[in-house]
């Protein structure tokens, strides 16, 4: 009994300590961000491995999610004779929720896990420590460019996801199910608000990008420097990112769309 309470206490202390280290890590990373603008080649390189390499996955997933939305949405709407609203349903679902959330989940799986593994391996092969001894701060040189790249890539990827998804919904709705294309687009335009829907969606994706990249980089930096440790850190990145994305999505949605 005492032992259980003790281990619970130890777990709690450990968690708080990690949280503290995580925040310290974030502050040091943020402090390193301005420097990157003097060395854009570092950023470009990371935009490639974090952003460009995720594009294919995002486009394909976005297209299919949009197509499924078109199909499911049509079947529901047609019962109310409101199939003209298909465009609205597809665009609002994507722009407000599915675009930011699903692309962030995919991003965590594709780019986040890769970042953790990369940093973790750099740590276990003493590359980070070697840099420190060469008087190069690895947080500025290695972590900060990756962080900024994640922050920039995420909203762009989410926008691509939504755009392709809406196109997928249109393909199914108009091409397959015969919804009038004029109605599809005009209804969508009337009911999708630039500020309330699109911009809020973009803000969500920026927040998700921030959190996922932070988690991924910290897990790598804080990993036990063994193959097992790096493996576990990679898993943690995906799991913790998923929790963070879904939890934050709820909070952000309540804040943004709460008052109707």
């Amino acid at each position: 009994m005492i032992e259980t309470i003790r281990s619970l206490g130890r777990w709690g202390l450990g968690t708080f300590e990690r949280l503290g280290r995580g925040h310290l890590f974030l502050f040091r990373t943020l402090a390193g961000v301005p420097e990157i603008f003097l060395r854009l080649s570092l950023l470009v390189h990371q935009l490639f491995s974090v952003g460009v390499l995720s594009v294919f996955l995002i486009l394909i997933s976005g297209l299919f999610v949009g197509m499924v939305l078109g199909l499911q949405g049509y079947n529901t709407l047609v019962d109310f004779g409101a199939e003209e609203s298909l465009g609205v349903l597809v665009s609002l679902s994507l722009v407000r929720e599915l675009g930011p959330v699903v692309s962030a989940l995919l991003f965590a799986g594709r780019a986040g896990s890769a970042l953790t593994a990369e940093i973790g391996l750099m740590k276990s092969t003493e590359q980070l420590s070697g840099m420190e001894m060469m008087a190069v701060d690895p947080i500025h040189r290695v972590i900060a460019p990756r962080f900024l790249a994640g922050l920039i890539s995420m909203p762009l990827l989410a926008a691509l996801f939504s755009a392709v998804g809406i196109f997928g919904g249109f393909l199914v709705g108009h091409g397959l199910l015969g919804v009038d294309d004029g109605a599809f687009w005009s209804q969508m335009q009337v009911k999708t608000d630039w500020y309330d829907d699109v911009l809020n969606g973009v803000i969500k994706s920026i927040v998700f990008g921030f959190v996922v990249t932070w988690i991924a980089l910290f897990e790598g930096y804080d990993a036990t420097p063994t193959s097992e440790g790096v493996g576990r850190a990679t898993t943690r990145t995906v799991v913790h990112s998923a929790f963070a994305i879904l939890g934050l999505d709820f909070v952000l949605t309540a804040l943004m769309f709460g008052e109707g």
Partner: peptide, 23 residues
């Protein structure tokens, strides 16, 4: 490719603004 990626992302945002919403 990075340039193309950033451009495509911005075009997608632009499309969401002009074609999808009432921007």
């Amino acid at each position: 490719t990075v340039g193309m990626f950033v451009a495509a992302g911005i075009v997608a945002l632009f499309m969401l603004a002009m074609k999808v919403s009432n921007f």
